[in-house]
């Protein structure tokens, strides 16, 4: 039997934030595409109500998380780096099929691999701001004259829709990537419990 040790990776707030955000995004996605007219599930009125409430909750959550990231310095985890990027890339295109271990060791101080850094930064700097800005503009459409805006919703709505599509793509890939840990559920467990079970370092046998 291999020996395992528990390594603490995710802080409690971080886990709450992650799952709350996940829930809200799913709700927003489901209701958003109903508002968009893609299908009928709750009815337009309910979908629109839920979407607006969830959207505001997500914005509030984002403000909290920004506060947390800055006060704890965790934001630095997202600083992009190209160092070892090719190694990680090689792992996902080759190594993973050969049963090689992930070349990146997750630690409390460095929990994101270089590829994750880029994708999450993209999420935080592109998808989310686009969705939030256009979403808020959408939400407060009736106040446009007061902030000097005019015209139909078209541009805002289309950007919001585009952001939503990108988020769905992100979601699909993200969910899949969580299964690429040491075991298919290792990453999921870590995000739930905060701890990742890793083999004791001198035991390097590959599974």
């Amino acid at each position: 039997m291999r020996k395992k040790q528990k390594v603490w990776i995710y802080a409690r707030f971080e886990r709450f934030w992650h799952w709350a955000q996940a829930a809200l995004i799913i709700v927003l996605g489901v209701t958003g595409f109903e508002v968009h007219g893609t299908y009928r599930l709750f009815g337009f009125a309910a979908a629109s109500d839920i979407h607006r409430v969830a959207a505001l909750m997500l914005v509030i959550l984002a403000i909290f998380s920004m506060f947390w990231h800055f006060t704890t310095g965790e934001w630095k985890q997202y600083l992009p780096t190209t160092e070892n990027l090719n190694v990680v890339f090689r792992f996902y295109t080759k190594g993973i099929f050969r049963g090689e271990p992930h070349p990146f060791e997750k630690t409390r101080l460095s929990k994101l691999n270089p590829l994750q850094r880029f994708t999450y930064l993209g999420f935080k700097l592109l998808i989310f701001p686009v969705l939030a800005t256009t979403g808020l503009l959408y939400l407060f459409y009736n106040m446009w004259p007061r902030i000097g805006l005019s015209g139909p919703l078209t541009v805002v709505a289309l950007l919001h829709t585009a952001g939503a599509f990108l988020l769905v793509v992100f979601f699909v890939v993200h969910v899949y990537m969580t299964t690429t840990g040491r075991t298919p559920t290792a990453n999921l467990k870590a995000m739930v419990t905060g701890y990742e079970e890793v083999p004791v370092t001198n035991d390097t046998r590959h599974g």
């Binding site: 968009h36 007219g37 709505a157």
Partner: peptide
């Protein structure tokens, strides 16, 4: 105009 649910690209 743009009416959500009616309009899209």
């Amino acid at each position: 105009g743009y009416i959500p649910g009616r309009d899209r690209s």
